[in-house]
């Protein structure tokens, strides 16, 4: 069971985890990650732009890759788009497996690829104006460990 959802709406992490754990399989571990809008440097809001269609395809391709590498029993990825204020949730990745090692690693793999390959862009709003966030080299470095 895997579900990929791109949405303007907020998500309920508890409900997402409950959906993952409802799968009738030999689940022994669920790892989840939630990304939140950080309110540093006077950030007022952040607007997430995306390429509909390609986002889903790109994430699905990495889900397929993750399933080849780890024995994943259930998986859910939710990514929000639109205007978000500090403290709001941006992204959810939840992975269920029989053991924690696979669940942790697959969740981290999926987040690293999501950040460097899925076509989303962040526009930050501050008092001084709006600026598109630039890609971080550290994110490109993170993804290299999986290659």
């Amino acid at each position: 069971m895997s579900e990929i959802r791109i949405s303007h709406q907020d998500f309920d992490p508890g409900a997402e985890i409950a959906a993952i754990s409802s799968v009738k399989a030999n689940i022994g571990a669920i790892a989840s990650f939630i990304g939140v809008v950080r309110g540093d440097d006077g950030l007022a809001a952040m607007t997430l732009d995306h390429y509909p269609g390609m986002c889903e395809r790109e994430i699905a391709a990495h889900v397929t890759e993750a399933k080849k590498r780890w024995p994943i029993l259930a998986l859910r990825i939710v990514h929000r788009v639109g205007r978000l204020v500090p403290g709001e949730r941006i992204v959810f990745v939840g992975v269920a497996s029989s053991h924690r090692g696979a669940a942790f690693e697959a969740a981290e793999f999926l987040m690293d690829y999501l950040k460097t390959r899925a076509p989303f862009w962040k526009l930050e709003e501050r008092k001084t104006g709006s600026v598109w966030v630039e890609a971080r080299e550290a994110d490109d470095e993170s993804v290299k460990r999986w290659q």
């Binding site: 990304g35 997430l48 995306h50 390429y51 390609m54 986002c55 990514h79 941006i90 992204v91 987040m111 999501l114 950040k115 460097t116 390959r117 899925a118 076509p119 989303f120 862009w121 962040k122 598109w132 966030v133 630039e134 890609a135 971080r136």
Partner: peptide, 10 residues
């Protein structure tokens, strides 16, 4: 064909 800057999601 789509053109865009390096991605910054997540």
């Amino acid at each position: 064909v789509a053109f865009f800057p390096p991605v910054t999601g997540g």
